[in-house]
Amino acid sequence: MRKIHIRVAMVYITAAILFLIIRSFVVPPTFGEYDWYRGDSVREIMELPPQHANATVCKDCHSERYDLWSGGAHSTVSCESCHGPSYSHTKDPIIVSANVDNSREFCGLCHAQNPSRPADFPQIDMDTHGNGNLCVVCHNPHSPWVFGGE
């Protein structure tokens, strides 16, 4: 073997070993725990805090509202669809999310006449229906067929 061959080979082998050593330090310990990814990543994603709670949690404190809502036509509309994400509120009631938008436009998001909507879904002509009054003047948003508003 010539000197040059041996030396070149030595440089390359050293580099390869160095690579493997660095690799063993740098690759996260849970990489490959399940498959070709970092096992900790699954746990990290699972541990992200939820923002939305659920109507059943709302019931614990707001039982009267809950009863009105669950018996009415808006019972399919989750509390948080209008009131916003409230998980932190359920953990600490002092945290209150922003007030509910009670504008006509807000109700129109669902109920404005739109030809793309299913025909059997209750829709109104925003220009004429209710003479421009706020919807909640007549309809109780928690149970819309209860008239007299909030």
Partner: peptide, 15 residues
């Protein structure tokens, strides 16, 4: 760059 190998005889150059 020579890596300490200064052998440039005809034979090695051929190799």
């Amino acid at each position: 760059l020579t890596m300490g190998d200064y052998d440039i005889s005809e034979e090695t150059l051929k190799k």
